[in-house]
Nucleic acid binder design. Structure first.
Lengths: 223, 223, 223, 223
DNA sequence: TATGAATGAGAGTTCATTCAT
DNA sequence: GATGAATGAACTCTCATTCAT
């Protein structure tokens, strides 16, 4: 995570000469995520993934048995990756407000100048697929639950320390995550009305208002 | 609109024996929307649309020249339809708060028992497509602008009459529409944590809090 | 013929508002020839011909019943046209040698600066079609007979007047027309080794040598 | 060449159970040539070629990526094959006149009774295609250059030994090859006025006259 | 484990032709 | 006579998947 902030998709090309079977699998999953992000879920061909991973289509099938399984596993992989990155980044932050800011920041902002930022495009595809693909749907739902739960307990923690005021933590988690998603759509699609920075600030202002903490408008990376 | 509340997709099968060329076109567009909603944008085959519209694939091409054009036009059609439905439904409502409630209601609630409610699934697909399909992207963006503008001027009107307090109308419009989108995702994907009713109420509570109007928790259809 | 020398394809666009059925037919035939020349026989679509003739595909079929008939008639039309042009141009020339030079000239040279010259491309297509299309084959063969016969009697006439020496007129006609065809292929395909002028001169030199007349190297248009 | 005289198209069906990928390719090229010769270039379907080669259309595409490439390569293959056959057959002949007779013979005559003779039909199609298909055009032109060059140097050689008189070798090569083409058209299309034998003799008589060697009227196969 | 070769099941699109008006 | 609408029959090309090696 040091070189690529909150990016959903870890790099694929790095691997080299395969190594263990598990490494091969992961390499293919990363390749799949890259291709999905670039081309879109439905336009992702096994041949593309194979090429990206430096192998043959037949081997991809050999590992994943079917295209559907490849893509579903790739999505699971991305979500685990993202969730883990989130908890890791919040780990050492002292206040609940800082941890919340970190989450919001992760959603919109790149950590370093050349970082492309989180790949919401993958999420857009994921939602569309979840609508008709029950396997994807359940993966997505579990992820969202975990995510809301993270916010939920973060709020409870903040309330215990007195940082946050007495709001319904569950409602807040739901609204907050919806707001993140909704703004992320605009940011991901490059809507000129919604820059990543503005999305970040609107989210934080909303949270500050609801939870009753003061926030100076700065992003965590800055100061 | 009397029989099908805020549904994005009007029925296709109803038409009967074609009639004008324009009617044929519209029939095909409706058929396309139905199929997109059911199968997803990428899985929509010309043959499906043709069958749904009761014609042959060749005729669909005859009218739309290419699959891409068919789907793009279908999306444009749906958005115009939905926007028009929104403005029509707000037309006769006396207060700004009532008009806002109508918009939120349209987004989540079916008006009558057998109404399937708005087809957010179409929107999920649209977002995913907009990411890589510039034509779709521009259609989507224009629609979102119109939509935020609607909310924007609704707020300004409410502020003039004293119904609403002094918030930044543009910021509110942006956050409000993002919230609608974000919650709609959960509702559309059938997340058990977010029923349509709950989404409606969370939205309204948020709006009431921000704009400073009192809201008794009722939906416009009920009372 | 005043403005377009030996061109195989007369213009189509000129006609205007149809007029009699016969005019319509001819207009379509001319349009067909244009399209065949441009696109090639096999790539000629009824729709192209219709558009060129300013009508609808359905009307073309109405007149010719089938695509095949249209194209076959078009070819017959072109050959008649070309044959007629040839005899007309030879009509008033005093000597057999001049008439021969006129024929050769017709095959390669444009008469006026902006004249594209004869459309051998049509002939290339015709040969290819004749190979598998008996109707076309018989049209072609009759044309070639007439053409060789023309040369044949031209030679006999020249021999009677003492202009030409005693060669076998039939053999000469055959070889001469083959030479015209063979060189025309190169000219038509733009082979850099064979300009229209060079083809003309090689032909004339051959004829002069065989028939024993003297020829100063000039083309009939020049002097 | 012992079993199939000057035939442009080598057999396809013979191959058997594929073998190397290269063999497969060649098998397909031969199949393509057969089909082009029978049906014509434009009427050649990938499915026909596949069936002839005993495989599936998909495999043909697998090897040649596109129909166009298949056909273009097939033509290149045929020309190389023919050119090579020509030089091979001339190799051991003692006199320039004999070599010339061999070339002319190759163009018209079958070597053995059941030999179909050279497939000029393929050439007719090739010319028609070359007119609008630049790739084909350049293949054809290079072939023609090689061919004329062959005749050219053959003449020079004959002049050096004193067999041939002092004509312009380049002009002769051009006229001679044009004559071959022109007569071949008639022969290929089965014109009753031009049998293969007559075409052969006319060509040889022309050459003998121009180059000043004596020729007894026999064909090389006969004596 | 790894892959090139092979294929079947479509998909979109074209086009001659028909038909109702 | 003239045409827009309609269609069925192809045709090329794609792609997930299988198989022999």
């Amino acid at each position: 995570m040091s070189e690529q902030a909150g990016a959903v998709v870890p790099q694929a090309g790095t691997a080299g000469a395969a190594g263990t079977a598990d490494q091969r699998r992961e390499q293919m999953l990363r390749a799949a995520l890259e291709v999905i992000t670039e081309r879109g879920y439905a336009e992702t061909r096994i041949a593309d993934v194979a090429e990206r991973a430096g192998t043959s289509p037949a081997l991809v099938i050999y590992y994943f048995k079917t295209k559907d399984q490849l893509l579903t596993e790739a999505i699971r992989y991305a979500e685990d990756y993202w969730y883990e990155a989130g908890t890791r980044r919040m780990a050492d932050l002292p206040t609940a407000a800082a941890r919340l800011a970190e989450i919001v920041s992760m959603s919109f902002l790149a950590e370093e100048p050349d970082d492309p930022g989180p790949d919401w495009l993958l999420w857009l595809d994921l939602w569309a697929q979840a609508a008709r693909h029950s396997e994807v749907a359940s993966v997505r739902q579990k992820f969202d639950e975990r995510w809301r739960e993270t916010i939920h307990s973060l709020v409870l923690a903040g309330q215990e320390t007195g940082e946050f005021g007495p709001v319904d933590a569950a409602d807040f988690a739901l609204v907050m995550s919806a707001l993140l998603d909704g703004l992320a759509i605009q940011v991901a699609l490059g809507d000129p009305a919604v820059s990543a920075r503005r999305a970040f600030q609107l989210c934080m202002r909303f949270a500050a208002g609801q939870l009753g903490f003061s926030w100076d408008g700065s992003s965590p990376a800055g100061g």
